[in-house]
Each structure stands twice: as structure tokens, then as C-alpha cells.
């Protein structure tokens, strides 16, 4: 059973009086536990596809079914619930909330789920342990290095134990050592928790870790390679 099913997906953005086609007839399925990547040059549609899967955007035509829910048919509230409970996001620029501590950043998604303080604390500390940052729980994001910030972002995406994690260029702002550390952490979580990881990247280092590489070019899938 596919976790993500994409059929004839088209996404167009208005540009002036016309429009720009970012995705053109995408057909893809991703199964549970995949460690897959959307690769391609800038403007190929990787982030757009990731955003649609993450219910941050909607298709112009075609369907995107995520965890048996059609993204284009979800209300704002339903989409927010889907993101909160089932989808984790990791961004290139970490997007940590600056006024919160590491602990509070990781805790944020759980606050929305109305989980008890005790359970939240347990879950947050476990997530920080996964990424090796328990000692930074009280630090503010501006006190962290780039690698540490991205590890906090990983902990934040994983703390709610989502089915899917969407990572948009997660290593773009990191050096090689940190990139490998981050990728190893994500790979480990993928294997241990059987979470589907989907990357948008053009980083060779990331591709080394992927089990499946979907290449996009001008909004179309040009290859879909599964590593054995």
C-alpha cells in the first residue's frame, strides 16, 4: 500500500497574463519506509512537489493522495491536522522559532496535539537523544551551529513520530561533515522507525544515502531509479 500516490499531477503558477508550469503530468508512488529523493536542477519542480505532498500547496489538476487523503480535497483545518500529526518537515534554513529554546522548538508540534506535559517532555527528550542534543535542550537557536540547528529540526520533525518526513535541501547550508552526520541520523531513524523520508535535493552527498532517486527536469519525471 503506497503512502503517497501521485497521478497526473500538474501544477501551474500564474506569471503575468500567462502561467508557468512547474509540474507537468507527474505519476509517482512512494511506499512506507522509503528513503527517497527528488533530484534535479533548480526550477525542476522538486520543492513544488514536496510542498504539494506536504499539503502546503494544492495541485492545479491531477491527484495527490497522502495517507489515503486527497490533498486537493482537504480543508485548511484538515490539511493542518495532517501536517501536525503525520508529516514532518525539514527545511534548508532550519526554520527554528527564534524565541523558543531547543526543547520548546521540538515540543511545539506536541503542544498542538494536546499531549500531557509529562508525555511531551518524555517525547522531546527522546527526540533530542536521537539527534544527540540532550545537552542543548535549554539553548536558543542563535546559540547553535548550523549542524546542531538542523539536528534540532530533525528532532522537531520526528518527535511526533510521523509517517512521512519531507526534507527540502536539508544539507544545503551544511559542511560535508555535518551533512553526513545529519544524513546518518535520518537514515537511522528511517530504519528504526520505518518512517518514509522524501528529500528534495541536488546534493551528491544526499544521493549516496537514498534508496530511490526520482529525477525531475522541467516539471517532469525523467527517471525513477531504485537502488538495490
Amino acid at each position: 500500500m503506497a503512502t503517497i500516490k501521485i497521478n497526473d499531477l500538474v501544477k501551474k503558477f500564474p506569471v503575468g497574463k500567462g502561467h508557468f508550469t512547474a509540474l507537468n503530468g507527474i505519476n509517482l508512488n512512494f511506499d512506507k519506509g522509503e528513503f527517497a529523493g527528488l533530484v534535479g536542477p533548480s526550477g525542476s519542480g522538486k520543492t513544488t512537489l514536496l510542498n504539494i505532498i506536504g499539503s502546503l500547496d494544492t495541485p492545479t489538476t491531477g491527484s495527490t493522495i497522502v495517507l489515503d487523503k486527497s490533498i486537493s480535497e482537504l480543508s485548511n483545518k484538515q490539511a493542518a491536522k495532517l501536517r501536525n500529526k503525520h508529516i514532518g518537515f525539514i527545511f534548508q534554513t532550519y526554520n527554528l522559532l527564534p524565541v523558543y529554546t531547543v526543547f520548546e522548538n521540538v515540543e511545539f508540534s506536541l503542544l498542538l496535539q494536546k499531549i500531557s506535559a509529562f508525555e511531551r517532555k518524555k517525547a522531546v527528550m527522546m527526540a533530542l537523544e536521537w539527534v544527540g542534543l540532550t545537552d542543548k535542550a535549554k539553548s536558543k537557536p542563535n546559540m547553535l551551529s548550523g549542524g546542531e540547528s538542523q539536528r534540532v529540526a530533525i528532532a522537531r520533525s520526528m518527535v511526533k513520530k510521523p509517517e512521512i518526513v519531507l526534507a527540502d535541501e536539508p544539507t544545503a547550508n551544511l559542511d560535508s561533515k555535518n551533512s553526513h552526520h545529519i544524513l546518518q541520523t535520518m537514515k537511522k531513524l528511517n530504519e528504526e522507525l520505518n518512517v518514509t523520508f522524501l528529500f528534495a535535493t541536488h546534493d551528491e552527498k544526499v544521493m549516496q544515502y537514498l534508496n530511490r532517486i526520482v529525477s525531475l527536469e522541467d516539471g517532469k519525471v525523467v527517471s525513477d531509479e531504485i537502488k538495490t
Binding site: L56, N76, A80, R83, F89, N95
Partner: peptide, 16 residues
């Protein structure tokens, strides 16, 4: 704006 986008990505609705 980035913070607003992050809130939404983390599961808040726009009205929240």
C-alpha cells in the same frame, strides 16, 4: 514570514 510559514508547516491553520 518564515516563522509564519513554519507555524503552518508544523500544523497550525492560518486562522490560528
Amino acid at each position: 514570514q518564515k516563522e509564519i510559514g513554519t507555524y503552518i508547516a508544523l500544523g497550525l491553520t492560518r486562522s490560528q
